[in-house]
Design a binder for these strands. Structure first.
Lengths: 158, 158
DNA sequence: AAAATTCATTCGCTAATCAAATCATATTTT
DNA sequence: AAAATATGATTTGATTAGCGAATGAATTTT
């Protein structure tokens, strides 16, 4: 593998690791677990969402989404309401308390990043945006082709 | 928040998400879970390690490390050996089977990324490396980061 | 109207994770 | 040397996450 590829991968892992650590810290600060916090953020960002959409956006199964919403509802951070026209759907929406919790626990990673990013010269901002998008596209491309292959060639399934 | 900041954050999240999906796929392919795979990689990279060090590098508690090692040992992927001079410590080392599993399950994310990255024109490679390193530095600015996983081909969890 | 579909939830199960307690071995103090 | 302290691994007990399959309710298609 080429040297620069290696360097990119290391940089990428450092980014991932920083994000991960941040998520844990943040979760601890709010008293929620990371997945719960993610769901709360997703719901707050969207205004209201169905469990199905929450599952899709959070990348978990529907059953898991339901149980996470359970926890949040029990803590009074979100509400459930049956759909009006389609009564199969359930609308999950943040409560005032839920919104305040998100405000009270501003994501430190995001804050640090934003501050520093906005202080960069214009050309560097542009470069970073372009590079991040490029990398994201590259990774997503791989995820799509790779998965079907891997399911077949399982190595040591029990 | 500025528009470009927002765009960067979205791109970042997309990268994160791709990585998460990749971890799950990989875990499925090997029959191991992501944390188990991480531990195996850490151990293989170090040659041999104590549970305490595994815990530190994987960023989990000692108890968790023990239970993960249990799983790997049960599958014959690592061995436990009591320390010679200090019999309190336990050395965890990969077996041949463990090493082979790592070889047989190359990280698809890494592979795809590498392939695509190496196909890029020189200037773009340079740009991406610079941008990723910049972002990593920015994110790590706040937290003191031990980043123990970096040298390993870790998959990263969510 | 019957069949198929769609959504949410429940159920049974496995894994991850932590904190506290426990056990064995070293090291330090008295 | 004996007692106290420290260290490392493990066990125990509990919670949370997560999945797939089954269930139930409501809607759409045939």
């Amino acid at each position: 593998m080429e040297n620069r590829t290696q360097t990119s991968l290391i940089a990428l892992r450092r980014i991932l690791r920083a994000t991960e650590l941040n998520a844990r810290t943040l979760a601890r600060a709010t008293g929620l677990t990371t997945p719960q916090l993610i769901v709360l953020e997703i719901v707050a960002a969207a205004g209201r969402l169905t469990p199905k959409d929450i599952a899709a956006r959070a990348g978990v199964g529907q059953a898991t989404a339901t149980s996470l919403v359970d926890k949040l509802e029990a803590r009074g951070l979100v509400t459930r309401t049956r759909g009006e026209q389609d009564r199969r759907v359930v609308w999950v929406a943040p409560t005032q308390a839920g919104l305040e919790m998100l405000k009270a626990a501003p994501d430190p990673l995001q804050r640090t990043f934003s501050q520093q990013f906005e202080a960069l010269p214009d050309w560097e901002q542009a470069m970073i945006v372009a590079a991040l998008e490029r990398v994201g596209a590259m990774l997503n491309a791989g995820a799509i082709d790779a998965s079907p292959l891997l399911d077949v060639g399982a190595v040591d399934r029990k």
